[in-house]
Computed example of a mutant assay.
Amino acid sequence: MPQLNPSPWLFIFLLSWSMLLLVLKTKTLQLTPHNTPSLPNQQTLATAPWNWPWI
């Protein structure tokens, strides 16, 4: 069964994955995020209780 012989396609498979990961890694590391992370707002807002009309 020739499909079980890894000789012809294993090298091509590994080479293509390594090139793909190499290209994608360099492309994704060059990207900058659109929203820079910032610290959350530490102010607490004053809340008022709701007046439910059916209670």
Rank of each mutant, 00 (worst) to 15 (best):
K27A: 15
P37T: 05
T26S: 14
P40A: 01
P40S: 05
P49K: 01
P2G: 06
P37L: 10
L45Q: 12
T44W: 02
P53H: 08
L29D: 14
P49S: 12
P2K: 13
L14C: 14
P53W: 05
P37F: 01
P2V: 02
I55P: 00
W54Y: 10
P49W: 03
S16N: 07
Q30R: 15
L29Q: 10
L22D: 02
W9R: 06
N5L: 11
N41D: 15
P49C: 06
W50H: 06
W17Y: 09
Q30M: 12
L20F: 15
P53E: 01
P33H: 04
F13L: 15
A48V: 12
W54K: 04
N35F: 11
L20I: 02
L31M: 15
P33M: 02
L45S: 12
W54H: 10
L31P: 00
W52L: 14
P40E: 03
I55M: 05
L39Y: 04
S18D: 04
T44M: 08
L22R: 06
N5I: 02
L4V: 04
P53A: 10
F11H: 03
N5R: 08
I55C: 05
F11R: 13
L24N: 10
S18T: 11
P6D: 03
W52Y: 12
V23T: 11
L29S: 09
P8A: 01
N5W: 06
T28F: 05
N41P: 00
Q43Y: 04
T28H: 01
L29A: 12
F13D: 07
W17S: 12
L24P: 01
T26L: 10
W50S: 13
I12R: 14
L10F: 12
L45E: 13
L15F: 13
P49E: 04
S7Y: 00
P8E: 03
S38D: 04
L21G: 03
T47K: 09
P2T: 03
F11Y: 12
N41Y: 06
T36K: 11
P53S: 09
F11S: 14
N5D: 15
S18P: 01
Q30E: 15
F11N: 09
F11K: 13
P53V: 04
L31T: 03
K27E: 13
N35I: 13
S16E: 01
L29H: 08
W50D: 06
L22C: 11
T26C: 07
L31I: 12
M1P: 00
S18W: 09
N5T: 10
Q43A: 11
T28S: 10
W17R: 04
W54V: 10
S18N: 07
H34T: 08
N51C: 08
L21R: 07
W52Q: 06
Q30I: 00
S18Q: 09
L45F: 09
F13G: 11
F11P: 02
S18E: 02
A48K: 06
T47S: 10
L4G: 09
K25I: 07
F13Y: 14
L29G: 04
N51G: 08
Q30P: 03
P33V: 00
A48I: 11
Q30H: 07
W9T: 11
W52P: 01
S16Q: 05
N35G: 00
K25W: 08
L45C: 07
S18F: 14
